[in-house]
Design a protein around this nucleic acid. Structure first.
Length: 578
RNA sequence: GGGCCGGUAGCUCAGUCGGUAGAGCAUCUGACUUUUAAUCAGGUGGCCGAGGGUUCGAGUCCCUCCCGGCUCACCA
């Protein structure tokens, strides 16, 4: 079943500064000023999109004031006469005047920086020529020679460039290079006097000139470990300009590499268990599978209102009815809700469904996935999250919801009358959308009293039947359903059921949901007649799971906020450009 | 949406009691062919988030708004 949530944020971008006096007054000042002017003219002429842009009818959204602001600011970008950018644009022009293309087409790199580090000794011994492409992230110039660091795929390698080896012309070109530029080198590996593995360049070439200053932090190696100075920390900057954040902060890139590892581990596990990976519609005529407010959109040709899915559940179950006994989908869900450190409007969830299984089988899968992902990242089932030691080794603790409320909340639900329960909720200001029902009150009590206190991995089982319209009744208690939610570090990280497959009961539950909606529960489930039809043809018993991928990654990588495991968290547009 | 905190140079940050906007790094000029936060010397660079107000005078005080963070509410 459906599940978890997520969210994120960003940073603001600096804009350009007013134009200042071009160029310095050195001997070449005048000539350079002329070049600067030519550059400015060409640049503006080529890039200013405004006045002559084709005027196709803009989509309505573009008329939103915020978008107008964005367009205005992107024009400001073109008019930006920020000194550092201007100087770099001049350098682009200078390269061209030297016959150098600042944006050539390709470069053959024989090695990555990582491989050069790994094979350093052998390469030094053989004296073989190697080539490397990457981004300039540090330069120490000393007249006719320079040391620099080049980064590719988040690994740094020192490169030594000497005028007498690369030639005066190429050295001059190198002199026009700035931090952030992409360069290609050929040469042989060596070790410097201080012992650092270094590529001694025989050739240098520009692969792509950067025209905006990249705020590369300085890296000091002290007592064997790296100390980073002047690192860009502004979170708004980092979230909005993730491309820069990733290029600058290796720790950030590392988090996303780990995210990819988690998803790969997850996929391999499910494939290994015989699940088929499938894709189902994101654009849906009717949403369902979770209690949430959907995003709406519209198909023009069909003149059809559509929803972005809030869960994959209902389509995956249709596939099981179609004979695919084990299916899973890893994909984005969209929920039109608030944003905080554990919620983003779009988030990644994996759902999987297994015919002839129940929710206890799903617990085993759930534990296995978390265990394998923890092992993949940490080599152990233990890790720490924000200072707290967590161990995801199976089996996880199991608590029924009533036990949880009793043990963690100190409330004996069965001893409370409906009146007492309502009074308790009323005192705390905990309202039930769509009107009081005992089961919903119990579930609310659990959320308020227990969730945040479930630190070590725990399955909370046996929810009140009113908590969902898609789950099968508990085989031992008709007031309950066979549902569990796993909690880690106080976060709900999934949701699972013994799936309801009785079409008569399903119809009744849908009807109840419709009634609740009429009474004010905006998130009540819509009536899905097609899903019901699929069930009427016969749907095998099955267990189903929804697992929040972003939250799992966040916990396994010790990130405080979901935004830190999303490349581009949802944010308001920048008020001013960048 | 409420509360609290923040927005000053490309980056990281100072800025007292309301009195001419600062530092380090980056950038520019010069020196330097094994440096590594390279070093040395000299420069440039600010709509102090935006708009109003108070004041002789506002980065600083007041109001409104924008963007962000935390938190509460909402919400799986």
């Amino acid at each position: 079943m459906p599940c978890p949530l997520h969210r994120a944020r960003e940073g603001r971008g600096g804009r350009g500064r007013p134009q200042r006096q071009p160029v310095s007054d050195g001997p070449a000042g005048v000539a350079r000023r002329a070049v600067a002017i030519a550059v400015a003219v060409r640049f503006n002429g080529a890039l200013d999109p405004a006045p002559h842009a084709p005027s196709w009818p803009p989509p309505p959204a573009i008329r939103h004031p915020r978008f107008v602001t964005c367009i205005a600011s992107s024009r400001a970008l073109m008019d930006d006469h920020n000194e550092q950018r201007r100087i770099r644009l001049e350098k682009v022009q200078q390269l061209r005047s030297l016959g150098v293309n600042p944006y050539p087409y390709r470069f053959e790199a024989s090695h990555t920086a990582g491989r050069l580090h790994a094979e350093g000794e052998a390469l030094i011994a053989s004296g073989a020529e190697v080539s490397l492409a990457g981004r300039l992230v540090a330069v120490r110039r000393q007249g006719k020679a320079a040391f620099c660091h080049v980064k590719d795929a988040h690994r740094r390698l020192q490169v030594y460039v000497r005028q007498d080896e690369v030639g005066a012309a190429a050295y001059g070109v190198f002199g026009l290079c700035d931090l952030g530029d992409y360069l290609g080198f050929r040469g042989a590996m060596m070790r410097t006097r201080t012992g650092e593995l270094t590529l001694r360049a025989r050739t240098v070439e520009v692969l792509a000139k950067a025209v905006r200053p990249l705020p590369v932090p300085k890296v000091e190696v002290k007592d064997g470990h790296e100390v980073v100075h002047d690192e860009v920390r502004d979170v708004e900057f980092r979230y909005r300009q993730r491309y820069a954040d990733l290029a600058l902060n290796d720790g950030v890139a590392e988090v996303f590499l780990r995210r990819a590892q988690v998803i790969q581990t997850l996929r391999e596990y499910l494939l290994g268990q015989g699940f088929l990976e499938v894709e189902t519609p994101i654009l849906q005529v009717l949403y369902g599978g979770a209690a949430a407010t959907p995003f709406t959109t519209h198909h023009k040709a069909l003149d059809l209102p559509l929803y972005l899915r809030i869960a994959t559940e209902l389509y995956l179950k249709r596939l099981v009815a179609g004979g695919f006994d084990r299916v899973f989908e890893i994909g984005k869900n969209f929920r039109n809700e608030g944003i905080d450190r554990s919620h983003n409007p779009e988030f990644t969830m994996v759902e999987f469904y297994q015919a002839y299984a129940d929710y206890t089988d799903m617990m085993a899968h759930f534990e296995a996935i978390w265990e394998r992902c923890a092992l993949a990242l940490h080599g152990a089932t233990r890790f720490t999250y924000q200072g707290t030691a967590i161990d995801v080794a199976p089996p996880w603790r199991r608590l029924t919801m009533k036990q949880a409320i009793g043990d963690l909340g100190g409330v004996d639900v069965d001893a409370l009358s409906d009146e007492a329960l309502q009074r308790l909720l009323g005192e705390r200001g905990w309202e039930i959308a769509g009107g009081y029902r005992r089961g919903l009150a119990v579930a609310r009590l659990f959320e308020e009293l227990c969730e945040a206190r479930l630190i070590q991995p725990t399955f909370v089982t046996d929810f009140p039947k009113e908590s969902t319209p898609l789950c099968k009744a508990h085989r031992g208690d008709p007031a309950l359903v066979e549902r569990f939610e796993p909690f880690v570090c106080g976060f709900e990280v999934g949701n699972a059921y013994s799936e309801l497959n009785d079409p008569v009961v399903q119809r009744e539950l849908f009807e109840e949901q419709v009634a609740r909606r009429r009474h004010g529960d905006q998130e009540a489930h819509p009536y899905d007649a097609d899903f019901l039809r699929a069930m009427e043809y016969g749907m095998p018993p099955m267990g189903g799971v929804g697992l929040g991928v972003d939250r799992m990654v966040m916990l396994l990588t010790d990130q405080y906020s979901l935004r830190d495991v999303l490349f581009f968290p949802t944010m308001r547009p920048e008020a001013e450009g960048a």
